[in-house]
Protein backbone atom coordinates (compact mmCIF):
# COMPACT_ATOMS: atom_id res chain seq x y z
CA UNK A 1 0.00 0.00 0.00
CA UNK A 2 1.03 3.58 -0.66
CA UNK A 3 2.67 5.13 2.38
CA UNK A 4 1.84 8.59 3.60
CA UNK A 5 3.81 11.18 5.53
CA UNK A 6 2.74 12.44 8.92
CA UNK A 7 4.25 15.31 10.84
CA UNK A 8 3.78 15.85 14.53
CA UNK A 9 5.52 16.81 17.76
CA UNK A 10 7.01 13.77 19.45
CA UNK A 11 8.48 14.21 22.92
CA UNK A 12 9.03 17.86 22.25
CA UNK A 13 10.62 17.48 18.83
CA UNK A 14 9.09 17.85 15.38
CA UNK A 15 9.09 14.59 13.43
CA UNK A 16 8.19 13.71 9.89
CA UNK A 17 7.73 10.07 9.12
CA UNK A 18 6.45 7.75 6.42
CA UNK A 19 3.75 5.33 7.47
CA UNK A 20 1.24 2.95 5.98
CA UNK A 21 -2.05 4.79 6.51
CA UNK A 22 -3.53 1.84 8.40
CA UNK A 23 -0.73 1.77 10.99
CA UNK A 24 -1.76 2.52 14.53
CA UNK A 25 0.17 5.11 16.48
CA UNK A 26 1.46 2.20 18.58
CA UNK A 27 2.99 0.51 15.55
CA UNK A 28 4.29 3.77 14.16
CA UNK A 29 6.13 4.50 17.40
CA UNK A 30 7.54 1.02 17.75
CA UNK A 31 8.23 -0.04 14.19
CA UNK A 32 9.12 3.23 12.47
CA UNK A 33 10.36 5.51 15.22
CA UNK A 34 12.19 2.97 17.36
CA UNK A 35 10.32 3.94 20.51
CA UNK A 36 9.57 0.54 22.01
CA UNK A 37 8.83 1.83 25.51
CA UNK A 38 5.17 1.93 24.48
CA UNK A 39 3.92 -1.65 24.73
CA UNK A 40 1.31 -3.73 22.96
CA UNK A 41 -0.65 -5.84 25.46
CA UNK A 42 -3.85 -6.47 23.52
CA UNK A 43 -4.05 -4.02 20.58
CA UNK A 44 -7.79 -3.78 21.26
CA UNK A 45 -7.97 -0.96 23.77
CA UNK A 46 -8.38 -3.29 26.73
CA UNK A 47 -5.13 -3.17 28.71
CA UNK A 48 -3.57 0.30 28.70
CA UNK A 49 0.00 -0.92 28.15
CA UNK A 50 0.18 1.29 25.06
CA UNK A 51 -0.89 4.51 26.82
CA UNK A 52 0.70 7.74 25.53
CA UNK A 53 -0.37 11.35 25.89
CA UNK A 54 -1.96 12.95 22.85
CA UNK A 55 -2.18 16.71 23.37
CA UNK A 56 -1.84 15.98 27.07
CA UNK A 57 -4.66 13.44 27.21
CA UNK A 58 -3.96 9.77 27.93
CA UNK A 59 -4.96 7.57 24.99
CA UNK A 60 -4.52 3.97 23.97
CA UNK A 61 -2.10 4.33 21.08
CA UNK A 62 -3.36 1.01 19.67
CA UNK A 63 -6.69 2.70 18.93
CA UNK A 64 -5.27 5.82 17.25
CA UNK A 65 -4.41 5.67 13.57
CA UNK A 66 -1.13 7.20 12.55
CA UNK A 67 -2.70 9.87 10.29
CA UNK A 68 -4.77 11.10 13.25
CA UNK A 69 -1.70 12.53 14.98
CA UNK A 70 -0.90 14.90 12.14
CA UNK A 71 -0.04 18.28 13.64
CA UNK A 72 -0.56 17.13 17.21
CA UNK A 73 1.63 16.53 20.22
CA UNK A 74 2.57 13.05 21.36
CA UNK A 75 4.37 12.30 24.61
CA UNK A 76 5.74 8.81 25.30
CA UNK A 77 7.63 7.25 28.19
CA UNK A 78 10.90 8.09 26.45
CA UNK A 79 10.04 11.79 26.66
CA UNK A 80 9.64 12.05 30.43
CA UNK A 81 13.19 12.12 31.75
CA UNK A 82 15.37 15.15 31.23
CA UNK A 83 18.55 13.45 30.07
CA UNK A 84 19.63 11.38 33.04
CA UNK A 85 17.27 13.14 35.39
CA UNK A 86 14.10 11.18 35.91
CA UNK A 87 10.78 12.85 36.53
CA UNK A 88 9.29 12.54 40.04
CA UNK A 89 6.86 9.82 39.03
CA UNK A 90 9.62 7.66 37.60
CA UNK A 91 11.70 8.26 40.72
CA UNK A 92 8.85 7.31 43.01
CA UNK A 93 8.15 4.12 41.05
CA UNK A 94 11.76 3.04 41.62
CA UNK A 95 11.87 4.08 45.23
CA UNK A 96 8.55 2.48 46.19
CA UNK A 97 9.34 -0.76 44.32
CA UNK A 98 6.27 -0.33 42.12
CA UNK A 99 7.95 -2.14 39.23
CA UNK A 100 8.00 -5.88 38.71
CA UNK A 101 8.09 -7.31 35.18
CA UNK A 102 7.77 -3.72 34.04
CA UNK A 103 5.70 -4.33 30.96
CA UNK A 104 2.70 -2.30 32.14
CA UNK A 105 4.86 0.37 33.72
CA UNK A 106 5.32 2.82 30.82
CA UNK A 107 1.56 2.93 30.32
CA UNK A 108 0.98 3.30 34.07
CA UNK A 109 3.45 6.17 34.30
CA UNK A 110 1.87 7.94 31.33
CA UNK A 111 -1.58 7.69 32.94
CA UNK A 112 -0.14 8.96 36.21
CA UNK A 113 1.55 11.83 34.37
CA UNK A 114 -1.73 12.88 32.81
CA UNK A 115 -3.41 12.75 36.22
CA UNK A 116 -0.81 14.78 38.09
CA UNK A 117 -0.58 17.36 35.28
CA UNK A 118 -4.23 18.25 35.81
CA UNK A 119 -4.78 17.27 39.43
CA UNK A 120 -1.73 17.78 41.64
CA UNK A 121 -3.57 16.70 44.77
CA UNK A 122 -5.44 13.54 43.83
CA UNK A 123 -7.23 11.39 46.38
CA UNK A 124 -6.46 7.70 46.49
CA UNK A 125 -9.71 7.02 44.65
CA UNK A 126 -8.82 9.51 41.94
CA UNK A 127 -5.48 7.77 41.48
CA UNK A 128 -7.19 4.39 41.22
CA UNK A 129 -9.63 5.76 38.66
CA UNK A 130 -6.85 7.35 36.63
CA UNK A 131 -5.02 4.02 36.28
CA UNK A 132 -8.09 1.80 36.11
CA UNK A 133 -7.58 1.34 32.38
CA UNK A 134 -4.02 0.12 32.92
CA UNK A 135 -3.88 -3.57 33.77
CA UNK A 136 -0.99 -4.90 35.81
CA UNK A 137 -0.71 -8.61 36.45
CA UNK A 138 2.34 -8.49 38.72
CA UNK A 139 2.01 -5.90 41.46
CA UNK A 140 -1.58 -5.93 42.67
CA UNK A 141 -1.38 -2.12 42.13
CA UNK A 142 -0.63 -1.38 45.81
CA UNK A 143 2.88 -0.07 45.36
CA UNK A 144 1.95 1.66 42.11
CA UNK A 145 -0.78 3.65 43.87
CA UNK A 146 1.62 4.46 46.70
CA UNK A 147 4.29 5.61 44.24
CA UNK A 148 1.85 7.99 42.57
CA UNK A 149 0.88 9.42 45.95
CA UNK A 150 4.52 9.98 46.83
CA UNK A 151 5.20 11.59 43.44
CA UNK A 152 2.21 13.91 43.91
CA UNK A 153 3.51 15.04 47.31
CA UNK A 154 6.94 15.75 45.88
CA UNK A 155 5.61 17.69 42.93
CA UNK A 156 3.49 19.81 45.24
CA UNK A 157 6.47 20.59 47.48
CA UNK A 158 8.50 21.90 44.59
Amino acid sequence: MEEITVQFMLNGKAVRVETPPAFTLLRLLRERLGLTGTKPGCERGECGACTVLLDGEPVNSCLILAPQVEGREVLTIEGLADGDKLNPIQEAFIEKSAVQCGYCIPGMIMSATALLDTNPEPSRDEIKTAISGNLCRCTGYTKIIRAIEVAAERIRKR
Partner: peptide, 23 residues
Amino acid sequence: RRVPRIDARDKVTGRTVYSTDRY
Protein backbone atom coordinates in the same frame (compact mmCIF):
# COMPACT_ATOMS: atom_id res chain seq x y z
CA ARG B 1 16.12 -4.58 53.81
CA ARG B 2 14.11 -2.63 51.30
CA VAL B 3 16.45 -2.52 48.35
CA PRO B 4 15.38 -0.77 45.12
CA ARG B 5 15.44 -3.09 42.15
CA ILE B 6 18.51 -3.04 39.96
CA ASP B 7 16.38 -3.19 36.81
CA ALA B 8 13.84 -0.53 37.80
CA ARG B 9 15.53 2.48 36.22
CA ASP B 10 15.48 0.93 32.75
CA LYS B 11 11.89 -0.19 33.24
CA VAL B 12 10.54 3.24 34.23
CA THR B 13 12.26 4.93 31.31
CA GLY B 14 11.11 2.44 28.70
CA ARG B 15 14.70 1.45 27.99
CA THR B 16 14.38 -2.22 28.94
CA VAL B 17 14.40 -4.23 25.75
CA TYR B 18 12.00 -7.17 25.97
CA SER B 19 12.32 -9.82 23.31
CA THR B 20 9.18 -8.51 21.62
CA ASP B 21 10.77 -5.06 21.39
CA ARG B 22 13.32 -6.22 18.84
CA TYR B 23 12.89 -4.92 15.31
